[in-house]
């Protein structure tokens, strides 16, 4: 009997009670062989996987090959509908197939599949002339995470009226967990409106956009933020006090308008609580 490869020995190291080692090895090899061809059409039909005449059947094993690739590509299309529409159906399916083969899912929740798609698109040479696609994929991924993120009740937009104005500088703003900031050099809000048929609130700068994605109740909302407001939001999310954040942003952006920035973030309802630091 030939020696089993080390990887198979490792896999079966914890089993083996009552079953001959040889049977365990050949069983594991059977699963290895069945798996190998699922995403790779060049791999022949595994030995012993047969049709009614007792011979290997490409068409029958092909049902599994097709189910695996088609369903994972469908999952990618469901998770990235704007990328799908921007590149077109045929291109998307070919692109997603490449992605699936390179980064197959490692767990069964498909709404969590595709976290590396933006990075993959950015490094995909045929798409080098479409640099915004990477950012659209990042925005769609952020949208998904916010959609499925934890629920939390945001504070009312007039919350600051209940805080002693003298202590406002010490206020700490805790964001709701379902929020993300996406930075881009491209007009993402326009692309989003056209491809996802959803409005984007806030400002629409011509370039260098920051989009705040959050889910204050059941609906995910997108808000375009000016650079200075985004920098301010980022500091507040990080746990800086209002005073600290305002001072830091004012030193970099001389036209920073604190009350306008606060109004924008409070009406986006991205904060779960505002507390004055003791």
């Amino acid at each position: 009997m030939s020696q089993a490869p080390d990887s198979i020995k490792e896999k079966i190291a914890l089993k083996g009670f009552g079953v001959p080692l040889q049977d365990l090895q050949s069983n594991m090899q059977g699963f290895d062989m069945f798996s190998d061809g699922l995403m790779n059409p060049a791999v022949p039909v595994p030995d012993g996987v047969v049709g009614r005449d007792g011979h290997p059947s490409e068409k029958r094993y092909g049902v599994y090959r097709n189910n695996v690739m088609a369903s994972l590509i469908d999952a990618m299309a469901a998770n990235f509908p704007a990328v799908h529409d921007l590149v077109g159906r045929d291109y998307f399916r070919a692109l997603a197939a490449e992605f699936v083969r390179k980064h197959p899912p490692e767990q069964p929740v498909l709404s969590e599949f595709g976290g590396k798609f933006s990075e993959f698109i950015g490094a995909f040479p045929p798409l080098a002339d479409y640099p915004y696609l990477k950012d659209v994929a990042a925005l769609e991924w952020a949208w998904l995470r916010v959609y499925h993120g934890p629920n939390a009740t945001p504070v009312a937009p007039d919350v600051l009226s209940k805080i002693d104005p003298a202590k406002l500088g010490d206020a700490v703003f805790t964001p709701i967990p379902a929020h993300r900031l996406i930075y881009s050099r491209f007009p993402l809000s326009e692309i989003w409106k056209q491809n996802r048929s959803e409005d984007v609130g806030g400002v629409t700068p011509e370039a260098d956009q920051v989009i705040l994605i959050c889910r204050p109740d059941m609906d995910v909302t997108l808000t375009g933020l000016a650079q200075d407001v985004a920098a301010f939001a980022d500091l507040l999310f990080f746990g800086k006090t209002l005073g600290e954040a305002a001072e830091a942003v004012s030193s970099s952006y001389k036209f920073f308008d604190l009350s306008q920035a606060l109004g924008c973030l409070l009406s986006a309802r991205v904060f779960a609580s505002v507390d004055v630091k003791a």
Partner: peptide
């Protein structure tokens, strides 16, 4: 199998 999730109900002997 081997950390890859295939999203199909695959058969076993």
């Amino acid at each position: 199998h081997d950390t890859e999730y295939f999203n199909d109900l695959l058969p076993l002997p």
